[in-house]
């Protein structure tokens, strides 16, 4: 069972390949504005470097976000279109869950905080157990200063601590962006557990516009 992973929820454009639960390879390019240029060539290269063609794929895994909208959609629409063209299933996972797994922390609690722009972070709080990572709260989007002090004090992965070093004191600089190879592992594990993984963009914010009625009410 060969799975292609795609995540464009952060400033990294990430792709990964896994076979039977093992990561074969992953690659990424950091370019916050280049998702639509880089993603397709990265996929083609990754497949070619691993001696595969698109027809060899059995499923696609994609990060549902949350993430800046335009980049996030590039990954999602690429995944669902490839799935349709190849006639294979597409599974979606909260991208913050992948970062939580990437953290590779010992048992305890963990915070994931990524760049939501506009001085906010996307975040979720996790409990790490023996061989398991479970989301306790989130995903949500907030100004970091609005998170409770004890939440901000948790060990934190993602770019939140890079952007707000004074607010997140225990940042792990080794885990900043989603690794699509780990995304593939997460999906393989959930598939084995029989979990449903719908593809859905986690925007967490409404579009910035007022309806005519709202404007009139101002």
């Amino acid at each position: 069972m060969v799975i292609l992973g795609i995540d464009t929820s952060t400033s990294a454009i990430g792709v990964g390949l896994g076979r039977d639960g093992e990561t074969l390879a992953s690659a990424q390019r950091i370019d916050a504005r280049g998702h639509s240029e880089h993603l397709a060539p990265l996929i083609v290269e990754l497949l070619r470097d691993n001696g595969l063609v698109p027809r060899d794929l059995d499923a696609i895994a994609v990060g549902n976000g949350p993430g800046p909208f335009t980049g996030l959609r590039v990954g999602l629409v690429t995944a669902v279109t490839m799935g349709h063209a190849l006639g294979i299933p597409v599974h979606g996972v909260c991208s913050l869950d992948v970062l939580a797994v990437q953290a590779g922390r010992p048992e305890g609690e963990l915070l994931v905080a990524t760049d939501a722009r506009r001085k906010e972070v996307y975040w979720a709080r996790y409990a790490v157990g023996a061989g398991s990572v479970a989301r306790l709260v989130g995903p949500a989007v907030d100004r970091p200063a609005d998170l409770p002090q004890e939440v901000r004090a948790l060990p934190t992965v993602g770019r939140g601590p890079v952007l707000f070093p004074d607010l997140f004191r225990d940042g792990d600089q080794a885990v900043l962006d989603v690794d699509a190879g780990v995304l593939v592992e997460v999906v393989a594990r959930r598939l084995a557990a029989g979990e449903a993984m719908p593809v859905e963009a986690l925007y967490l914010r409404r579009p910035d516009a007022l309806t005519t009625a709202e404007r009139a009410a101002r």
Partner: peptide, 20 residues
């Protein structure tokens, strides 16, 4: 519109690369 165009362009690339 940049963001709107990007959805179509990404989808077209996905079709092209999947189908060769």
């Amino acid at each position: 519109l940049a963001g709107a165009l990007m959805v179509g362009v990404a989808s077209a690339k996905a079709l092209a690369l999947s189908l060769g």
